[in-house]
């Protein structure tokens, strides 16, 4: 910044331009990612690892070839409470098929409150904390609740920002993906 003394020299010039270009590149990259918004349909779902509250580890490899409903929620989020019953019912509907997986990801939530939430809403599908908020970040989520439905090819097939209003809404999305086979 304070290269006041000899920017007429070659080193000074290179340094000044180098700093400027680096700064602009950084800010440009940041601007791009802030404008990108949530992952959109057709994009490949990012790899992730979810360690559930009961100690099970679920990775991207485990869900290959399956339809995944990945719901990001938090116990302090009011709309998530309304949505929990719909998600659980939809999970009951698909549970026995084997090719549909529901995953709950608790964002910025404490374990105690998360577990209380799961118990209160009788959620039975696997749930885990978003360690280091990496899942939230890699899916470029913008808030809670947000739900990403991933098709059997591992692509994002549907993004729901805000809560699902009914079981049917979830079933319609998932059924369409299952029909594609």
């Amino acid at each position: 910044m304070t290269e006041e003394k000899k920017p007429t020299s070659f080193v000074g010039r290179v340094l000044a331009w180098g700093l400027l270009i680096t700064l602009l590149a950084l800010v440009g990259a940041q601007l791009r990612s802030s404008l990108q918004g949530v992952l959109t349909r057709g994009e490949q779902a990012p790899d992730f690892t979810l360690t559930t509250f009961d100690g099970q580890t679920i990775t991207s490899a485990d869900i290959e070839g399956k339809v995944v409903v990945l719901n990001i929620w938090a116990s302090w989020c009011l709309p998530c409470k309304d949505e929990a019953a719909h998600l659980e019912q939809a999970w009951q509907h698909y549970q026995d098929r084997g090719d549909v997986i529901f995953l709950g990801v608790a964002y910025v939530d404490t374990e105690k409150e998360s577990l209380a939430f799961i118990e209160e809403h009788h959620v039975t599908y696997p749930n885990g904390p978003d360690l280091g908020t990496t899942i939230y970040t890699s899916f470029r989520a913008r808030g809670v609740p947000e739900t990403f439905v991933i098709n059997k090819l591992g692509e994002i097939a549907s993004v729901k920002i805000g809560p699902y209003q009914s079981v049917e809404e979830i079933i319609t999305v998932v059924d369409r993906l299952l029909e594609l086979d």
Binding site: S75, W76, V108, D109, T110, K112, E113
Partner: peptide, 24 residues
Amino acid sequence: YCPVCANVPLDVCGTAACAQWRGQ
């Protein structure tokens, strides 16, 4: 600093998420 409220220290943040964190 709780990610839910940008740049507000946890001890004075009023959101429900921050209250839970203080409980934690």
